[in-house]
């Protein structure tokens, strides 16, 4: 066994590579399901809703984020369809008037001041540019959270600072850190 030493070493390299590339990216995230099996697709198709019908801006320009229960209960005070998801939603949240504990995929870190309205209204950026096809999905994917930093996986995937900077740079709108940080 002349090459035994090299083989053991290579085995170590391979195991580490496997763990680092395949195991680690899974292990670093903690996954949890969303409270309601919400379908953006159904709302877009059947109810004809646009994004801003529910994800609205307030008068002062702040973004209302995920709508509160009042907004949902406006239509779903009683069941409108016959799906299990809707029934569960009404039984668990609408009737007891409990806000669903939504997890926001795109919630930015505490030190970021992200203004939706400057992007959507002034710069005419489409929702899909950052949120991808979320608005046409049929189910909500589980929320994945980084175990150490606590940030959502989506922030890591395509909403990293580098991604923001790349777009800002492209449009010549990169002035200083405090443009986006607070």
């Amino acid at each position: 066994m002349k090459h035994r030493g090299k083989i053991v070493f290579l085995a170590g390299v391979l195991v580490a590579l496997g763990a680092g590339w395949l195991g680690f990216p899974r292990a670093i995230y903690q996954s949890r399901p969303q409270p309601v099996n919400f379908s953006h697709k159904v709302h877009a198709d059947k109810a004809g809703s646009k994004c801003e019908d529910c994800h609205a801006f307030r008068e002062d320009g702040t973004f209302a984020d995920i709508p509160s229960l009042d907004k949902c209960a406006g239509c779903h005070a009683a069941a409108m369809g016959s799906t299990v998801a809707e029934k569960n939603f009404i039984d668990r949240y609408v009737t007891p008037q409990r806000e669903p504990p939504w997890a926001s995929y795109a919630r930015q870190p505490e030190n970021v001041y992200f203004s939706h309205i400057t992007h959507v209204k002034l710069a005419q950026v489409k929702c899909e540019r950052c949120h991808g096809g979320e608005g046409s999905t049929d189910t909500l994917r589980p929320y994945q959270q980084d175990r150490i930093s606590g940030y959502s996986r989506d922030v890591w995937r395509d909403m990293k600072m580098d991604d923001c900077v790349a777009c800002h740079r492209q449009h010549g709108l990169e002035h200083s850190c405090l443009d986006c940080h607070k």
């Binding site: 002062d60 320009g61 001041y113 203004s115 309205i117 002034l122 405090l178 607070k182």
Partner: peptide, 21 residues
């Protein structure tokens, strides 16, 4: 001090709501 940059952000956002910089 950064001249209340949080207020600057909020003002910028309000201006955007009114469709201007």
């Amino acid at each position: 001090c950064n001249f209340c940059h949080g207020r600057w952000h909020a003002a910028k956002q309000l201006a955007a709501a009114n469709g201007r910089a």
